[in-house]
């Protein structure tokens, strides 16, 4: 498993990026964690529907998304807000989605990030189709799909991996192995030693990476993206990480896992190791940290305000979202609700 930055912030022989780039990734992770904490708090206040936190997985998501071009495709899940944001999806729309508003699924024009998949596993093949279409028309866009360890047990994982390899599509499969599928531990999810090794059976490269190490994730995903962009086909990346929080706000992890594990994983925190590294390299000060946190809080507050300022959706909008032109059935039901 590739690790470049140890939990104590020390680096082996090399880093794939400059100190300045590392500061940007750190700043992004701080912003993402601020969003995550804010959403947890908002859910407790009854301002959001269920929320699925990603705390602990910031490096896997930010590191991966940072390798993409703005016009690349992303097909991710309900736990991938950090990844989606780093790929161009605004925080305000992510919040709007969690307040229970379909308008949150409307990525801005030019942002090729699909709304998050809520069912597990069905979306991986979409990144195969997206990438396939791009290859067929001769563009060099790639598609990245993100999913958890649980999704690899779905039949659709097999179909997506197989299609991607057979048609050599420019698809990057990013598995964030966060240890649990709700309560079901990774060790029981599959008898494979790793998820990455499953790639071999499909005839594509599989890479195991420390998912809490943003530099290592950046390096392996960048390599996969570059290969895909050059026509070299798909890659499966397993980023080993840990979901520090519950599955969702409706979940109680104490029912299925040992709190000691979470404590141990907190010591491998993806942000802290970068902070230590930057501090040692003269790229971090307490003042900068305060600045980052203040700015992140402002950005997230503004996003929340935008989401909460969306007018109450109308019944007409609900019906008019189904087809480009309302069908005869939709039209008659629009009349029935009195519009």
């Amino acid at each position: 498993m590739l690790t470049l930055i140890s939990p104590d912030g020390t680096v082996g022989d090399r880093l794939p990026i400059t100190l300045e780039e590392m500061r940007r990734l750190y700043s992004d992770m701080v912003e993402a964690r601020t969003y995550d904490h804010k959403c947890m708090a908002m859910q407790r206040q009854g301002r959001l529907a269920t929320y699925a936190p990603f705390e602990g997985q910031e490096a896997a998501q930010i590191g991966a998304a940072a390798t993409l071009r703005p016009d690349d495709w992303v097909a991710a899940t309900y736990r991938d807000a950090a990844l989606m944001w780093r790929a161009g999806y605004p925080w305000s729309l992510l919040v709007a989605g969690r307040t229970g508003d379909e308008r949150g699924g409307q990525a801005p024009d030019g942002v090729n990030v699909l709304p998050p998949s809520i069912t597990v596993g069905g979306h991986m093949i979409h990144a195969v189709g997206l990438a396939w279409a791009e290859a067929l028309r001769g563009s060099d866009r790639v598609a990245l799909t993100s999913f958890g360890d649980g999704a690899t047990s779905e039949g659709d994982f097999h179909e997506a991996m197989n299609f991607a390899a057979v048609f050599n599509t420019p698809t990057v499969f990013l598995c964030q192995n966060n240890g649990f599928a709700i309560s079901y531990p990774r060790a029981e999810q599959t008898r494979s030693e790793s998820i990455a090794m499953k790639a071999e059976g499909y005839g594509m490269p599989g890479v195991l990476v420390d998912g809490n190490d943003v530099a290592a994730v950046f390096e392996v995903v960048r390599e996969a993206v570059t290969r895909a962009r050059r026509g070299g086909g798909p890659t499966l990346i397993e980023a080993v990480t840990y979901r520090l929080g519950p599955h969702t706000t409706a979940d109680d992890p104490n029912r299925y896992r040992d709190e000691d594990d979470a404590v141990e994983w907190r010591e491998k925190d993806p942000l802290e190791r970068v902070r230590l590294l930057l501090e040692r390299a003269g790229g971090w000060t307490p003042e900068w940290q305060t600045d980052l946190e203040t700015r992140a809080a402002d950005v997230i507050e503004e996003a929340v305000a935008m989401a909460e300022a969306l007018p109450q959706p109308t019944a007409e909008e609900m019906l008019l979202r189904m087809y480009e032109q309302p069908t005869s059935s939709i039209e008659s039901q629009l009349r029935e609700i009195g519009s």
């Binding site: 069905g122 979409h126 990144a127 195969v128 189709g129 997206l130 791009e134 659709d156 179909e159």
Partner: peptide
């Protein structure tokens, strides 16, 4: 599922 899912991705991409 793969056929329809891949076709779906292609359709989204235009």
């Amino acid at each position: 599922s793969g056929i329809v899912g891949a076709a779906f991705g292609m359709a989204i991409a235009g």
